[in-house]
Simulated assay, not measured.
Amino acid sequence: MPKNENLEFVSFDDYLAEQMTDPEFARAYARTQEQKQLLATLRNHRTQLHLTQQDIADKTGIKAQNISRLERGLSRPSLETITRYAQALGGSIVFQSQH
């Protein structure tokens, strides 16, 4: 295989900036970031309430291993699952317009 002498290192930030010029990519990235933020908020509230993943599992009927996967971003939870998790924390999911 011929060696390409023109290869250069591209940082993730530079790569991301380039990809963000694509409107479809930018929208998908924004959705992913919002989802990650929501899951982090749920996890943070759980820990502030001194609840374990097993506590949430017991309150929601969702397996503890699935709570773990949800919190780590390894699954795409349904709205039903997120709602049950929020309710187990004494909260709810609310739409907030940015306009």
Rank of each mutant, 00 (worst) to 15 (best):
H45D: 04
H45E: 15
H45K: 13
R46G: 01
R46I: 02
R46A: 00
R46D: 07
T47M: 13
T47Y: 10
T47K: 12
T47E: 14
Q48L: 15
Q48F: 05
Q48D: 12
L49A: 11
L49E: 10
L49V: 05
L49Y: 09
L49W: 06
L49D: 05
H50N: 13
H50C: 03
H50Y: 10
H50P: 01
L51T: 02
L51S: 03
L51K: 14
L51Q: 05
L51R: 08
L51W: 02
L51G: 02
L51N: 03
T52M: 06
T52Y: 00
T52G: 06
T52K: 08
Q53D: 01
Q53V: 04
Q54F: 02
Q54Y: 01
Q54A: 10
Q54H: 03
D55E: 02
D55G: 02
I56R: 00
I56G: 01
I56Y: 01
I56N: 00
A57D: 00
A57S: 11
A57K: 08
D58G: 04
D58S: 10
K59C: 03
K59P: 00
T60N: 07
T60V: 08
T60L: 07
T60S: 03
T60C: 00
T60A: 10
G61T: 07
G61W: 01
G61H: 04
G61V: 07
G61K: 06
I62K: 10
I62H: 06
I62A: 06
K63F: 01
K63A: 12
K63P: 13
K63C: 04
K63M: 08
A64L: 03
A64K: 15
A64R: 15
Q65C: 07
Q65L: 05
Q65S: 09
N66S: 12
N66V: 08
N66M: 11
N66C: 08
I67Q: 04
I67F: 04
I67W: 04
I67A: 00
I67L: 05
S68D: 06
S68C: 12
S68N: 14
S68V: 00
S68K: 12
R69S: 09
R69T: 02
L70R: 11
L70I: 15
E71R: 11
E71Y: 08
R72M: 14
R72K: 14
R72P: 03
R72A: 10
R72I: 07
G73Q: 11
G73F: 13
G73N: 09
G73V: 14
L74Y: 11
L74M: 11
L74S: 08
L74A: 13
L74W: 08
S75N: 12
S75L: 13
S75H: 07
R76K: 15
R76E: 15
R76P: 04
R76S: 13
R76I: 07
P77L: 09
P77G: 07
S78Q: 06
S78M: 06
S78Y: 05
S78N: 09
S78T: 10
S78V: 06
L79Q: 06
L79Y: 07
L79D: 08
E80M: 09
E80S: 14
E80F: 12
E80Y: 12
E80I: 09
T81E: 06
T81R: 06
I82C: 10
